[in-house]
């Protein structure tokens, strides 16, 4: 699946999904709510635009009107007030949110109604509304991609187990669940990018808490193993790719070559584990996670080992040179 280039939602979708604490309601221009689109999670404040500097109004952003803006409008006479509001270009603004439960001026309600501009209101203070709206839009507008794999929470790390069909991802997950780790998603993982470099994985609604194993069928993990065996979503910290032994030609024997896989333009460290009979996958995965935990804390055993080996090479080299000199002296 290709990630959407420009995710967007309509104003009415936003109202539907926004956190209940905002208590959003439409005071005017409800007709525009189903057509106007929000495309950027960051909000704007209309302050300068009301004063006449309208250059930076972004049509895809939610516009905030707080107490200071309403007070500013209030001290203008009615005609100037209507002019300042019209100047904003109400046709191209996605929506306006009035905070702190303030009653918007009559002119704004009339103009919004005329332009079909959704005029929203919330009892919440501007400062809180801005952060709640931004967080909520960030999630709603996050680029999303579906990955084939299993997402698990192992020792607190979000681990995406990938590999071809039938290689044993789900069986490996079951083994990990039996050892006390948590299942987030099996088979299809919906990955959202939150901000610039954070990936959040979750199961599609229908598949949540379920695992399918050949021969056992579809199982509800929460029923079988309890509530602590499942987790709703998890940030993805590591990808583990399972590959058939004969296909895994580029296996890192030393563990020194850091590999990564790109998901939604974010680099995720990746470990390639060859699969063959007699290799206990869940122990290998668990151990790979332990290694990754140490690495994120700045300790890389493979690199330390190599540094020790290099020191050993140096001492033997100097011994060779010494013996070379001795041979020359003897001559």
């Amino acid at each position: 699946m290709k990630p959407n280039d420009q995710p967007s939602i309509t104003v009415s979708e936003f109202i539907h999904h926004a956190p209940a604490q905002l208590e959003l309601r439409i005071t005017a221009g409800a007709q525009g709510a189903t057509t106007r689109q929000l495309t950027v999670p960051r909000v704007q404040k209309l302050g300068l635009a009301l004063a006449g500097f309208t250059n930076y109004i972004h049509s895809g952003r939610l516009q905030i009107l707080g107490q200071s803006e309403i007070r500013y409008l209030g001290q203008l006479d009615a005609e100037k007030r209507r002019e300042a509001i019209r100047n904003l270009g109400l046709e191209r603004i996605a929506c306006v949110l009035v905070t702190k439960g303030i009653e918007p001026p009559l002119e704004l309600i009339e103009e919004a109604e005329a332009a079909n501009l959704p005029l929203l209101s919330t009892p919440v203070l501007s400062s809180i509304a801005i952060s709640v709206v931004t967080d909520s839009l960030q999630e709603l507008l996050a680029p999303i991609v579906a990955r084939h794999g299993v997402l698990m929470d192992i020792y607190g790390l979000g681990v995406l187990i990938e590999g071809a069909s039938g290689i044993g991802k789900s069986e490996c997950a079951l083994d990990l669940i039996a050892r006390g780790h948590r299942l987030v998603a099996d088979d299809v993982v919906e990955v959202r990018r939150i901000g610039a470099d954070r990936l959040l994985g979750a199961a599609p609604e229908l598949l949540r808490e379920h695992l399918e194993i050949r021969g056992l069928g579809i199982m509800n993990i929460r029923d079988l193993f309890g509530v602590s065996a499942v987790s709703a979503n998890k940030a993805i910290d590591l990808s583990i790719k399972l590959e058939r032994w004969d296909e895994a030609s580029e296996v890192d024997r030393l563990g020194i070559d850091a590999q990564a896989v790109e998901i939604l333009d974010v680099n995720v460290p990746q470990v390639l584990i060859p699969v063959s009979p007699g290799r206990n996958l869940s122990t290998l995965v668990e151990t790979a996670v332990r290694v990754q935990l140490l690495r994120t804390r700045g300790y890389n055993a493979a690199q330390e080992f190599i540094a020790r080996h290099e020191k050993m090479l140096e001492t033997t080299e100097s011994r060779i040179q010494e013996s070379g000199f001795r041979i020359k002296e003897n001559l």
Binding site: R253, H309, T316, I320
Partner: peptide, 14 residues
Amino acid sequence: SILSVLMLAASRGT
């Protein structure tokens, strides 16, 4: 065997 090869400690000239 990687570890076995490393234990040769074969530096330049070996």
